[in-house]
Measured scan of single mutants.
Amino acid sequence: MSGIALSRLAQERKAWRKDHPFGFVAVPTKNPDGTMNLMNWECAIPGKKGTPWEGGLFKLRMLFKDDYPSSPPKCKFEPPLFHPNVYPSGTVCLSILEEDKDWRPAITIKQILLGIQELLNEPNIQDPAQAEAYTIYCQNRVEYEKRVRAQAKKFAPS
């Protein structure tokens, strides 16, 4: 494992614990031996107030490669969400998460999670990743928002 990646992720964890947006979660997972795995984080993004996503808490896994922060983490909703920019596998399609697009090593975990929260309610229809959600979003916004509200209710924190 890269010392650069681990040191950056340790800084990220410290900064997150000191200050993070209300309702968001970002925690490194534990290895079988109980030690912390900084390369694999369990996160959760709350649906934004005043949107059909409100009330939901959407679980996301963030996986970092050894060359982080040169390369972005892979962000994957578990379980996958109904959304035009979420692949059926759950992987998020967002330009700041793509090395050859808008990724920059200075982007923080907090910025990534806030960017994904923004994307939930403002899909990028130029870059669809899920045919069904994309089609319904474009053709029947009322039905799309109904499905999103049902999903938010399903993923409401207990």
Rank of each mutant, 00 (worst) to 15 (best):
T91P: 14
D127I: 00
I112V: 14
P79H: 15
F64H: 03
N124M: 04
M36N: 00
W16H: 03
T51A: 02
V25I: 15
Q117D: 07
L94S: 07
P28A: 10
F82H: 06
R13S: 02
R149Y: 08
A44R: 02
K18C: 09
S7K: 07
P32S: 14
P80Y: 14
Q111T: 13
W103Y: 15
V27S: 08
G55E: 12
W16Y: 05
E143A: 12
R13H: 04
T29L: 15
L97I: 15
R61D: 11
G90V: 00
G34H: 14
W41E: 08
D100L: 12
P88Y: 07
H20C: 05
P28M: 05
E12D: 00
G47P: 01
T29R: 14
Q111Y: 15
G47W: 08
A131Q: 14
R13V: 01
R17L: 01
K101M: 08
I96G: 06
P79E: 14
P52C: 10
C138V: 08
P79G: 14
I109D: 03
T135V: 15
A129G: 04
V142P: 14
E122P: 02
A129Q: 04
G56F: 00
I107R: 06
S158F: 09
T135W: 12
M39Q: 03
S2Q: 15
A129H: 04
S158D: 04
P73F: 03
A26I: 07
G50H: 11
F58M: 06
P157T: 11
L6D: 07
F82Y: 05
K14F: 06
L38M: 07
G23H: 06
G50P: 01
E98S: 15
V142G: 13
L9T: 03
K76M: 13
T29I: 10
A131Y: 11
L57S: 09
G115F: 01
L57Q: 11
E99P: 11
K110L: 05
E143D: 11
A150I: 14
K48W: 01
C75I: 15
R61W: 08
E12M: 05
P157E: 06
L38S: 01
Q130H: 11
E118F: 15
M62C: 08
S70A: 13
V25N: 04
P28D: 05
C75P: 15
E118Y: 11
G56S: 02
G56K: 05
L63R: 13
L38H: 01
R147F: 03
L94V: 15
P79S: 14
L63C: 06
S89H: 15
K49L: 06
S7H: 07
T108V: 15
P52W: 11
A156H: 13
C93H: 04
A44I: 11
